[in-house]
Each structure stands twice: as structure tokens, then as C-alpha cells.
């Protein structure tokens, strides 16, 4: 806890909800951001998963609470309650899967219905490393983002491309962050829970560790 005791500025908490069809890479993006690693076989997210990351910026501490939702159709009616109170909605599609891109409209509607204009929307095209399998061009993604007036970025969680940049960009536009310069050399601290069910308890919940970002 010693690393936290230094912070004088109040802690701002922001909820980021990740939406998108199944297997577009929501969990991968989050894991890349949190732990800077990638695995080809993330287990399917059932319902929802949560991860928090505290970012120590130049003059403030920001805690990002990442809500990783399940993309599957079957429990989609649970999703509106997860979108509630979110500051940011990140809608992810897979650039190698056109169907997931076509679903973006529906996800956008879902967010608008729940949050109206009180939310920062980000469109993310993931899996850019698979160039030969690409079905959705960058221009199409950009056009869609422009059409809805939202932020856009392409990422590859596998290659680690643009993931940190994505979160930096999000951090810079969070409400109350307008006057803060875009963080460049920010320090980040993981507040990590024992997400691995193979180990014993959750008592390490307060453990803090420096991230490699």
C-alpha cells in the first residue's frame, strides 16, 4: 500500500465496458493492456469479467475498471445493466470477420439506448496482425467511426500493436481530464487479483505490482 499512500490527489474511478461479438478479442486486448501478454486460447468469458488498473498520471490517479463482457448472443439481454454507469464503451470487432463488423451498429445502439450521449465511444478493429485474412479495411472502420462521430483505432492484441496507445487515448479524453496533457510517461500500477483459479485464495487482492508498460 506504500505506493498508494504518496498520492495526494483524489482518485477518479472510470468504468470502461468492452463490447463486441464473441471471439473478437476483448479479453485479449484487456489482458495485453493489464499484463502485456497474449495467449491464443483465452477461455470464453461467461457473463462478465472485471479487472482494475490504477494509472498514476502526472497530477492525478485514475482507476480504470474494465468490464469485459461476454460476446455471445444468448445472454445479451444482461448486457444493458453492465453498460449502465459506464464512462467509456469500447466496441471491438475483428478485422478478419465481417459479421463482427456488421454487428457494430447493434452494439452502438445498445450503448446509446442505455447511456445516450453521456459516454465516450471507441471503435476498435482488432487482429490486424492477420493481414492475409483481413475482411474489413481500415478505411471502412474509419468511415464507420466518422459516421457516428466516435474515436477509432485498429489494434493487434497478439502483436501488442496499438493497445497501450488505445488506453492512452482513452485516458486523455476521460471526463475531467480535458486540461491534462496526454500522458506519455505515465506510471501504471496493477491492482491484481488472483485471476488464476488454480491457486489458493483471493487474499492477495491488495497486492500491487509495477507493470511493464
Amino acid at each position: 500500500m506504500s505506493s498508494q499512500s504518496k498520492s495526494i490527489t483524489p482518485l477518479s474511478k472510470y468504468k470502461l465496458v468492452f463490447l463486441g461479438d464473441q471471439a473478437v478479442g476483448k479479453t485479449s486486448i484487456i489482458t495485453r493492456f493489464m499484463y502485456d501478454k497474449f495467449d491464443n486460447n483465452y477461455q470464453a468469458t461467461i457473463g462478465i469479467d472485471f479487472l482494475s488498473k490504477t494509472m498514476y498520471l502526472e497530477d492525478r490517479t485514475v482507476r480504470l475498471q474494465l468490464w469485459d463482457t461476454a460476446g455471445q448472443e444468448r445472454f445479451r439481454s444482461l448486457i444493458p445493466s453492465y453498460i449502465r454507469d459506464s464512462s467509456v464503451a469500447v466496441i471491438v470487432y475483428d478485422v478478419t470477420n465481417r459479421a463482427s463488423f456488421l454487428s457494430v451498429n447493434r452494439w452502438l445502439e445498445e450503448v446509446k439506448n442505455e447511456r445516450g450521449e453521456d459516454v465516450i465511444l471507441v471503435l476498435v478493429g482488432n487482429k490486424t496482425d492477420q493481414t492475409e485474412r483481413r475482411q474489413v479495411s481500415t478505411e471502412e472502420g474509419e468511415a464507420k467511426a466518422k459516421e457516428y462521430g466516435i474515436m477509432f483505432m485498429e489494434t493487434s492484441a497478439k502483436a501488442g500493436f496499438n493497445v497501450k496507445a488505445l488506453f492512452r487515448k482513452i485516458a486523455s479524453v476521460l471526463p475531467g481530464m480535458e486540461n491534462v496533457p496526454e500522458p506519455t510517461n505515465m506510471q501504471m500500477v496493477d491492482i491484481k487479483l488472483n485471476s488464476n483459479t488454480e491457486t489458493t485464495t483471493t487474499s492477495e487482492s491488495n497486492q500491487t505490482q509495477r507493470c511493464r508498460c
Partner: peptide, 23 residues
């Protein structure tokens, strides 16, 4: 796991609950 839930920071409660398990 109630003692963990009472100790943990409020913002961490969702993920703490999520990862509750037995071994």
C-alpha cells in the same frame, strides 16, 4: 470469503466477488 469482501476497496469488489472460489 466475507472478511476479504469487507477489507477490499469498494472499487475492487466486483472482481473480488468474481474470483471467489474454493480449492
Amino acid at each position: 470469503h466475507e472478511s476479504i469482501l469487507f477489507q477490499v476497496n469498494q472499487a475492487m469488489l466486483p472482481e473480488t466477488c468474481m474470483h471467489i472460489t474454493v480449492h
